[in-house]
Simulated assay, not measured.
Amino acid sequence: MGTLPTDHERRGFMKLIASAAALTSCCCASVGRAFAHETAERGGAIAGGEKSAKSRMLGIGADVLQSQAPIAAINMYLNGFHFYADDMGRQIEAHHYCHHVNEDFFQCVIYDGNKSHSRLIGIEYIVSEKIFRSLPADEKPLWHSHRHETTSGELVMPRIPMEVEHTAIASLVNTYGKTWHTWQIDRDSALPLGIPQLMMGFTQDGQLEAAMIESRDTELGISTLKERQNREDLAKSAGPVQAGADGWQSGQAAQLVLQKLPLKNRRG
């Protein structure tokens, strides 16, 4: 049996723990301030005070002890653009982090950037053409096609070899997405005000503002033109867009509006 630590050893051990905690707190505070500064430069800081030492330490503990299986399953990063279903003039760059659940279904969380402090602004579900064809007629207009996004070079997978990206993008050409943005960052970058909005994708050249493409390309160090040239074979082999998708093309767009309704099944 080992000997018990002396009072001196115990005090030394506790000081070591306290020092480590203080160092962690200091580092977290510095990083937090840096993130807050960078966020402010990119459109204004998110409302709220800086994290306390207690909150940071709780976060570190949760990160070590708790499972993050749904987040860990994310295995694809896509960058592209959306517009509000009822207003093509409101255009948003969207960073998608997706889980390829099976051959016919992806689910993605969408951020306004690719940094740890980026705002979570929406979700997108992506289905194969087979599943899209099976949807009810009144459901299809809520979904947008990916044919133009993929073949034009608008949709990219940053930081992976172009050959690998080409293979991955090829699997998305004939898919369809249903996208909701929960944070209208073009109107308020501090808080997610209002209600979720249905988003759509672009279907032809000239719809997406050139300045947005240029800004994205500069930020990510890519060339949309080169991406497009590398995908000429995909454009030639892509099938036609299925009827019912891109509902806004009829001139009438679906969109959410807030409505008060009587409460049902109230308890208490």
Rank of each mutant, 00 (worst) to 15 (best):
E38M: 12
S152C: 06
D188Q: 13
V109N: 14
I185K: 08
T6A: 10
K130V: 08
M199A: 15
V101N: 01
V173Y: 07
W143G: 07
G239R: 13
I46Y: 01
S55L: 00
I60W: 01
H181E: 06
D7I: 12
L261C: 11
E149S: 03
P240Y: 14
H96R: 14
E232Q: 13
S152K: 04
Y125R: 00
T39P: 05
A34Q: 09
R147W: 14
A253Y: 01
T150M: 12
G122I: 13
S152M: 07
D217I: 07
D138V: 11
H99M: 06
G113A: 13
G122M: 13
A29H: 01
D86A: 00
S25K: 04
I222W: 15
H117S: 13
R11E: 06
Q242V: 11
Q242A: 09
R11Y: 07
M199Q: 15
T203A: 09
R119G: 02
Y77V: 11
A34E: 03
Q197H: 15
T6C: 10
R267D: 03
L135H: 08
A34G: 03
M57H: 00
S134K: 10
F13N: 10
F202R: 04
S250E: 03
A235E: 08
H95R: 12
V241Y: 07
V156F: 12
E50F: 00
I131K: 08
A40W: 10
T24S: 02
F81E: 02
H144C: 09
S19E: 12
R147Y: 15
Q229H: 07
A170R: 02
I195Y: 09
Q204A: 00
A21R: 04
A211P: 07
F83A: 00
F105H: 00
A245I: 05
C98I: 04
